[in-house]
Simulated scan of single mutants.
Amino acid sequence: MRSARSAGEVIFDTINVVVLCLLSFITLYPFLYVLFASISTPSEFVQHRGVLLWPKGFSMDSYRMVFENPNIIRSYLNTIFYVAVGTTLNILMTALGAYGLSRRNVMWGSTIMLLIVMTMFFDGGLIPKYLLMKNIGLLDTYWALIIPSAMTTWNLIIMRTAFQGIPVALEESARIDGANDWTILFRIIIPLSLPVIAVMVLFYGVWHWNKWFDALIYLRNRDLFPLQLILREILIQNDTSSMMTSVGGGDRMPVGETIKYATIIVATLPILFMYPFLQKYFVKGVMIGAVKE
């Protein structure tokens, strides 16, 4: 029979619930503020000051303006391309590197790994990178945001550690049956490492989706701009002064303030939708790749 809880336990649990609810609200409120602002009536929102706990009126004009803006639509499609192609290349290159460095008795394996790890601490700098991109002809191309970031050292270390945790007996039995390294990697190692692969997809996908600085440095053609660079122009350079919408009687009112928040929502939702599908792999994948038994 369950014993009665003491007054101290009840007080402790109550305080925990209150504190956690408060922290959850503090964490969630910035997103709610942006959401409420994006669907508020522009004329009412610009007059509001202070905390926003519900929309001021209701209007979808900001979202209509976002999707009618050709720069945003084009940059959205560019970002999808960068995420899809970039993440695919990232996973392939990271898996190949991790597999080679995780095998036993690899010639100079420790030395190669040391040289790779050194890239986390030493960097050539922005100007040498720019000159390199210019000399190899990647400036103002889609590949300027994909090829230079084909693999990151930290993710390589995580995936390499995960591959090392797979029993060697599986590889040995596959080789007895005539399997080569390609078969072992794609038919055995990767299927057994799906949690880590899912985490890598999330890491690389979010990284590509939020990337804007490389585009600012390497791209001049606006047709190649990713969404985040257009969003930066809207938020920092206040490039919404010409965005107006009609109201009753032919008057015009600015939606510059609310369109900023609508753009943030449009840019954020795809990443938020990724988490429910990958969350079951997240903790397991990180732990597998971060702790070597």
Results as ranks from 00 to 15, higher is better:
91 I>S: 08
95 A>C: 11
109 G>C: 08
116 I>H: 02
68 E>P: 06
80 I>Y: 05
84 A>P: 08
57 G>D: 05
109 G>P: 03
73 I>L: 15
95 A>D: 00
86 G>R: 05
76 Y>L: 10
84 A>D: 08
114 L>G: 02
87 T>H: 12
122 F>G: 07
87 T>M: 13
102 S>T: 05
56 K>G: 02
93 M>S: 12
73 I>S: 08
74 R>K: 14
115 L>W: 10
78 N>H: 03
112 I>N: 02
106 V>G: 02
68 E>T: 11
72 I>D: 01
94 T>W: 01
63 Y>M: 07
114 L>H: 00
63 Y>E: 07
63 Y>L: 06
105 N>P: 09
70 P>A: 12
92 L>C: 07
73 I>N: 04
71 N>W: 10
81 F>D: 05
87 T>V: 15
70 P>V: 11
99 Y>C: 00
115 L>C: 14
106 V>Q: 05
86 G>F: 03
104 R>E: 15
96 L>S: 03
76 Y>K: 04
111 T>Q: 10
100 G>K: 00
102 S>G: 05
72 I>N: 02
100 G>S: 09
111 T>A: 15
120 M>I: 10
117 V>W: 01
80 I>P: 00
107 M>N: 13
69 N>D: 15
103 R>G: 02
64 R>Y: 09
57 G>S: 04
63 Y>I: 03
105 N>K: 15
75 S>T: 06
68 E>H: 12
95 A>I: 02
115 L>I: 14
112 I>R: 01
78 N>L: 02
62 S>C: 06
122 F>H: 10
61 D>Q: 14
96 L>R: 04
122 F>V: 14
74 R>T: 12
81 F>E: 09
93 M>W: 08
90 N>F: 13
99 Y>I: 00
67 F>W: 14
97 G>I: 00
87 T>C: 13
61 D>V: 12
121 F>A: 10
86 G>K: 04
120 M>Y: 07
119 T>Y: 02
87 T>N: 12
109 G>L: 04
92 L>T: 10
94 T>I: 12
124 G>F: 09
82 Y>V: 10
79 T>C: 06
92 L>Y: 11
117 V>Y: 01
116 I>S: 03
93 M>F: 13
115 L>F: 15
90 N>D: 11
80 I>Q: 05
60 M>C: 08
121 F>M: 11
123 D>W: 12
91 I>G: 05
73 I>M: 13
99 Y>V: 01
75 S>G: 06
74 R>W: 04
123 D>A: 12
93 M>P: 03
106 V>N: 04
98 A>T: 00
60 M>T: 11
101 L>Q: 00
76 Y>S: 08
107 M>W: 14
57 G>K: 06
59 S>P: 05
94 T>P: 03
116 I>C: 13
68 E>N: 14
112 I>K: 02
88 T>R: 09
81 F>T: 12
57 G>E: 02
58 F>T: 09
72 I>C: 03
60 M>R: 08
101 L>H: 01
91 I>M: 14
123 D>L: 08
58 F>P: 03
105 N>F: 14
112 I>P: 01
111 T>R: 06
76 Y>M: 09
60 M>S: 11
114 L>T: 02
69 N>G: 08
111 T>F: 13
82 Y>H: 11
82 Y>T: 06
77 L>C: 10
